[in-house]
Amino acid sequence: MNQGLKGIVAAQTAISYIDGNKGHLVYRGFDAKKIALEFSFEEAAYLLWYGQKPNQAQLADLADALKSHRTLPGYLMDIIDTLPQDMDLMGVIRTAVSALGDASFEWMPTTEQAIKLTGIIPSIIAYRKRKLANKPYVAPNEELNHVANYLYMLTGEMPLPAHISALETYMILTLEHGMNASTFSARVTISTESDMASAVTSAIGTMKGPLHGGAPSGVTQMLNDIKSEERAEKWLREKIENGERLMGFGHRVYKTTDPRAEALREKAMEVSGQDKWLDLALHVEKLAAKLLAEYKPGRNLYANVEFYAAAVMRAIDMDDALFTPTFTASRVVGWSAHVIEQAEHNTIFRPNSEYIGHLPEFE
């Protein structure tokens, strides 16, 4: 028996491919690392939804379509306003997305529905975040692309180019990652011939769990404690010698360097000198990899995407509460691509279970 369905092939997909032993991540036949460093968010989303790179006209149409869905309808603002103050952001996104599921989302799922959800989720996050902070709502800026507008709506200020670039790279790298728990949840829901909004709501509920979409607060705390490049080696050696884990190193899928971490490292190097926090992260990652190889030879412990996600989020002044929601704002592209793919060749998911309880005596 394969607990948790580990190792069981549940579907065929043309959306992405992962080779954990070689450290490869592929989006629609393209190296995801190159996509992250060379594409915009809109271009990468188009690739995942349509299976090909967009031309300039197609890219412009997609950018306009995403912009057209940024504005929150009044009824959705009212719903968000009435939610409990202590409901976390993932709960708010889940509730808001489910409330979007009107008749236009009925079977079968479409790319237009995917674009609508992708366009509005950053606005949901920004509206709720500013509301809780007693700050005024910031309307979308039609002159900005998807990622830049997200930062703008969160802060009310024009974001720095280095911050836009770093966050865009991160969000492209988290668009899609195979048959993970939330993607499987979305595919199971749509396999019943439910609707796109319900399938994405299922995925958000799954992402909310700390075993899947947990915030990299441990990495942030580690970098906060290290404080400077001069303190790094002594701090790291003490942690390793005390048998403590270095947060943000090692991955249960990738047995070599996480390609997403590689791309984020390259982006951090590109903007290094523009942000001291990213400079510190680069130094710590290089030093930690060296020390882990020294103290734990053969373990192949490298920085994972969580390490650089923490560095990027801290550099752009996002607190930990925004990590999983931001992850969600990008992963909705992958979820929706899988929902559409599942619907095109649909078979309802209906696995068996093994009964281990008591049986009565039958006559």
Rank of each mutant, 00 (worst) to 15 (best):
L175V: 01
E233A: 07
A232K: 12
S330G: 06
S336C: 15
A139F: 12
G248H: 11
T155E: 12
L37A: 04
G74R: 11
I348F: 07
L25A: 05
M108C: 12
H24Y: 14
F323M: 05
K34T: 15
T328H: 12
E294W: 12
L5Y: 15
L89E: 07
S194F: 14
R28I: 07
A45D: 10
K276Y: 06
K34Y: 10
R237V: 02
M77P: 00
T257S: 07
V332T: 14
A162M: 09
V332R: 11
H345L: 09
T201L: 11
V147Y: 10
V26P: 04
G298T: 04
D275T: 04
R252W: 14
L154D: 10
G243T: 00
L37C: 05
P216E: 09
I35R: 08
P109V: 05
E341L: 14
I121W: 10
F249S: 00
N21C: 05
K296N: 06
M269H: 03
I164P: 01
A281T: 01
A303V: 03
E229S: 11
K33P: 02
M318P: 04
E238S: 01
N242S: 08
N304R: 09
M108K: 14
S123H: 12
S165F: 11
A60Q: 06
S217N: 10
K286T: 13
K135P: 01
S202Q: 02
T13C: 09
I172T: 00
G205V: 04
I164Q: 10
P73M: 13
A199L: 13
P210A: 06
M196Y: 09
G205H: 10
R128D: 15
V253L: 15
T220V: 13
A343N: 10
D195I: 01
Y137P: 00
P259F: 13
W49F: 15
P122W: 15
N300C: 03
A133F: 00
D102E: 07
R265C: 05
Q3C: 05
E244C: 00
F362L: 14
H163Y: 13
G101I: 04
M158C: 01
Y295P: 01
E241R: 05
Q3Y: 13
D88E: 09
Q342L: 11
F249R: 02
A148L: 02
A148W: 13
I121T: 08
L100I: 06
W277H: 15
L89F: 14
G119C: 04
G214V: 05
Y27W: 07
R252D: 04
V188N: 03
Y137F: 14
I172N: 01
Q221K: 15
A126C: 06
H24D: 08
P297F: 13
K286Q: 15
K6C: 08
G205N: 09
